[in-house]
Amino acid sequence: MEYLIHIAVLVCLYGILGLSLNLVVGETGLISVAHAGFYGIGAYVTALLLVGLGMNFFLAMALGIIASGLVALLISGVISRLRGVYFLFGTIGLNIIAWSIFLNWQSVTRGPLGIPSIPRPGIWGLDLYQNLQFLFLAAASLAIVYFISVFIKKSSFGRVLNSIREDEEATQIFGYATSYYKLAIFTIGAMLAALAGALFATYITYIDPSSFTINESIFIFSTIVLGGLGSSRGAVLGPLLLVFLFEGFRFAGFPSEIAAQMRMLAYGFALVLLMLYRPKGIWGTFRI
């Protein structure tokens, strides 16, 4: 039914986000919570091109992806020499700066007014107005990103990433210019996140800065920790579980005056329990 289709679309989106973050965090060991920023860049660029220029969706999405990649290149050149927790703090700063730009650069992004009436994508004259149709697009995108992710993981490039994760200095001694690898994967991750952003913008037809806050980054991060870092399957299952869990609590039948608060409470509780009982995540192969 419609509701489940809607949830399925969200799962696909968060699956893409999870996979893209997993490449950076799980495979390479770079703890990043900047992802919502790139998600947002993808969404905003696509939305602006669709609404302002009436561009074809796939072209707009491609431009959004490229924009995000460029920003990532610039930024990662700057922060890639940070290690561990410092890198984490740096990415926090980046996300908040990006959000601040979405909010304040009003001549472009319309700030809190957001960008409404974003059209659905049109493929060969077929306008993906029905959610079920959109689901096919979303699922296809997820599949593509999944294959890209597995491909990277299995390639020699991926093996270098893993060894950077395990011990960066040793990898350098072996002659690998690790900063380039980190730069590359951070950029790839950002570009895939932007893909999700483009899909999000056209699906929900309205975006504003509130969808791209640090809280959103932390949520994406949670989905892959839960699923298990370093696992592509985990990067999709984690989001599946958390999205279902969070929506599922709507049906839990809490007393209505405090139902919404109870839902958040139950969700927080579930997070704590899940971490206590499965600290490696479900499919995890790696601990930072």
Partner: peptide
């Protein structure tokens, strides 16, 4: 259990969410 700092981070997120919800209630 030698949980990674990422796991502790998520657990602390759970704590934050629960406390906020309780205070709101």
């Amino acid at each position: 259990r030698k949980a990674s700092s990422a796991v502790l981070l998520i657990a602390s997120l759970g704590v934050l969410t629960v406390i906020q919800a309780v205070l709101a209630i």
